[in-house]
């Protein structure tokens, strides 16, 4: 994000630590609680509820909760642009990987090629149809949705435009979907399936397999570049000023 990093307000009885979070005595905190005004001078660890005085780390540094060691802020220089580039690449790779042949098997003169969607739709008898839909969602449609949502949220922010309409809702949905995006698990699943089949028949990788493997690396990179707190902060800033 290209927002300037300014340190939070300071007071006398605070202790600095090297990771950029400051610990304060309680007596200064009890004052000035007014209705629905956010305490922008604080950051609260979502895992353990510890409240810390907010001091933004420099790009490359990390702010870590001193109690439970959850990473709270991880700004990176030019992260927004890198994420947009990665997300665009992922978008094309998902579409291509879903369409092109994925794996080809041959044994005894018979061959069979499948695409990723065909693999998902293998669950086709009776109640297993539900599973087919769930699998297709987990490996193709949810990752695709997340990429589109993150582009929608990040592109205006990186180019210094006001946030897109409902950007906060879009980013919240993207975050809620995060545990359900399972493309990387599917790739490892391919490796396991191939070990199991390899004694039965010859398996060759189609172009889509390599695209999907590359996609997984890019998704992991994209996730590690993204500082969620910075995005939330950037989304809220224009409305305040």
């Amino acid at each position: 994000m290209r927002k300037a990093f300014t340190p939070g307000p300071t007071s006398g009885n605070e202790r600095w630590n090297r990771r950029g979070l400051r610990l304060r005595g309680s007596e200064t905190e009890m004052s000035s609680i007014t209705d629905t005004v956010p305490r922008t001078d604080l950051i609260v660890c979502p895992q353990c509820d510890a409240a810390w005085s907010l001091a933004r780390p420099e790009p490359g540094e990390r702010a870590v909760c001193q109690r439970c060691h959850t990473v709270l802020i991880t700004p990176r220089r030019k992260a927004g642009m890198q994420i947009i580039a990665l997300a665009t690449a992922v978008l094309f790779l998902i579409i291509a990987a879903a369409v092109f042949p994925f794996l080809t098997i041959s044994a005894g003169g018979t061959t069979n090629s499948v695409s990723i969607l065909e693999a998902a739709l293998a669950f086709s008898d009776g109640p297993l149809v539900l599973l087919a839909l769930a699998t297709a969602a987990l490996i193709v449609f949810i990752p695709l949705t997340r990429v589109l949502l993150s582009l929608y949220v990040l592109v205006p922010l990186v180019f210094d435009r006001p946030p897109a309409p409902h950007a906060a809702r879009a980013f919240r949905l993207s975050e809620a979907l995060r545990p359900w995006s399972m493309a990387e698990i599917f790739v490892i699943g391919c490796a396991v399936a191939l070990i199991k089949i390899s004694e039965l028949a010859d398996v060759t990788f189609g172009p889509a397999f390599w695209m999907f493997a590359a996609l997984v690396v890019l998704v992991v990179l994209q996730e590690s570049f993204l500082c969620r707190w910075s995005v939330w902060n950037a989304l809220s800033e224009p409305q305040k000023s």
């Binding site: 005004v37 305490r39 950051i43 609260v44 969620r228 809220s236």
Partner: peptide, 8 residues
């Protein structure tokens, strides 16, 4: 819990 912001 989503964005770590504190509120009254």
């Amino acid at each position: 819990l989503r964005c770590a912001q504190a509120w009254p």
